[in-house]
Design a protein around this nucleic acid. Structure first.
Lengths: 233, 233
DNA sequence: AGCCTTTTACTGGTTAACCAATTATTGAAT
DNA sequence: ATTCAATAATTGGTTAACCAGTAAAAGGCT
């Protein structure tokens, strides 16, 4: 198994070049929102790359909402204007692999908020699911087994209960990177699982009591060691 | 790859079915981290779908870090364990279109933090770029033109100065949805551009002075109207 | 048997041909 | 000249064939 999952490959470089060329094309031709891009075939010929490479680049720009492909019709510039478009493409091209510190910093930010929101919005059904996740975690720890997964699922259950689909998505996006880096840097070794149980219980208790500030504070306590470790590397 | 942020299509439904079947397969065959999935051809035959559909589903799971494709070798289950894997796939399948409220709520959370971090970490180069973005915004407003794009780019410049690549990426992801909904609900009409200039200037001033708390507060002030509007719908 | 080379089959990725739907063009009828 | 139906060209999406590299199997050698 390859440990470093998110390695930058040769095709990533090609894709960035294509994206850059598409941007130049939009600027040079003064394409405005709603205007049609040249067809995939024309682009692949003009840029001297395969059509599938062009398609991938277009799909990436579609992901960021900058282009809009319509079957049997064409690919169109999104309705956000050429200035914002240039700025965003520049940012997308500049984006590189997120470092561990960046991931943890974002995770803490998100989770302090989801804990707070969960305390405000959790349904009885949410409570059941969080309790189940916590029980699974507790059992594993008491058996002396590795409970990183159950730990994680408890936090995702909170994110679910927060009732914010965007934050929920973002939590899912950063989770694998967090796990990978935890294993790489042996973060879990520095945390006492038994302490983790009490901290989790305190968080759930606050959410159960619909006490948002307490939930946030208990989550903060839970992240204290991670926080210090993160800023020490 | 397409995230569920935008419109849901027919092929998205097919993709979710395939993801669901891959999950069942992993469970039924008791595949563990590092184990190899059947080949794309076998999966497409077994599920009675095209190979490209299978590839897209695998790429989505790869995006969330659950699978790992190695050329000329195979697709492998990531190193996160079957329990977390099941939980995350369940979450991914459940994800639906984020509502406007969810987007704004997340944006405010992110931007209060990026403003704070930018005040702590901004380089002289960052200051120049933020100032340029602000000037472009100011000029447009003074000419009576629509300055939504320049507004946006100023905020993205702050996110860049915050020095957190994950938050930067997340800002880019939510921005198109924010713009689309702004136009849909005519949010901009409710904001006075001239007031916006002063608010932007105050934010930049705080970042320039390396005053994180002031930067956060000024950003909060800037979002006040949006915040109220968001929670009123 | 054990080791090493050679061969074979299989893998994800790439390319090219094909498809159905849309759009542009044509041209006759009014 | 205008309108509108028929046709041709073009589009993104799909499928199937192909490629290069890997991993396993086979087979000869000691």
């Amino acid at each position: 198994m390859k440990l470093d999952i998110h390695t930058i490959t040769e095709s990533d470089i090609i894709q960035k070049e294509i994206i850059s060329k598409i941007r130049d094309l939009i600027n040079h031709k003064n394409l405005e929102p709603g205007d049609k891009l040249p067809s995939e075939r024309q682009l692949s010929e003009r840029f001297d790359v395969s059509r599938s490479n062009v398609r991938e680049a277009i799909q990436k720009l579609e992901f960021y909402g900058l282009l809009n492909s319509i079957p049997q019709s064409g690919t169109f510039v999104a309705n956000i204007g050429v200035i914002a478009l240039n700025g965003m493409i520049e940012d997308i091209l500049r984006l590189d692999e997120p470092d561990f510190k960046s991931l943890v910093e974002t995770r803490i930010l998100l989770e302090l908020k989801t804990a707070r929101l969960a305390a405000l919005r959790r349904t009885p059904e949410d409570l059941v699911q969080m309790q189940e996740a916590l029980d699974a975690y507790t059992n594993k720890v008491h058996n002396g087994e590795n409970a990183v997964q159950e730990d994680l699922l408890f936090h995702l259950a909170i994110a679910k209960a927060a009732g914010n689909s965007t934050m929920n998505t973002f939590m899912l996006i950063i989770t694998p990177g967090i796990i990978t880096n935890f294993e790489k840097y042996h973060v879990c070794d520095k945390n006492q699982p038994v302490i983790g149980i009490k901290e989790h219980e305190a968080i759930l208790e606050a959410i159960k009591n619909k006490d948002p500030e307490a939930a946030k504070q208990k989550m903060k306590d839970h992240f204290k060691i991670l926080y210090q470790y993160c800023y020490s590397i």
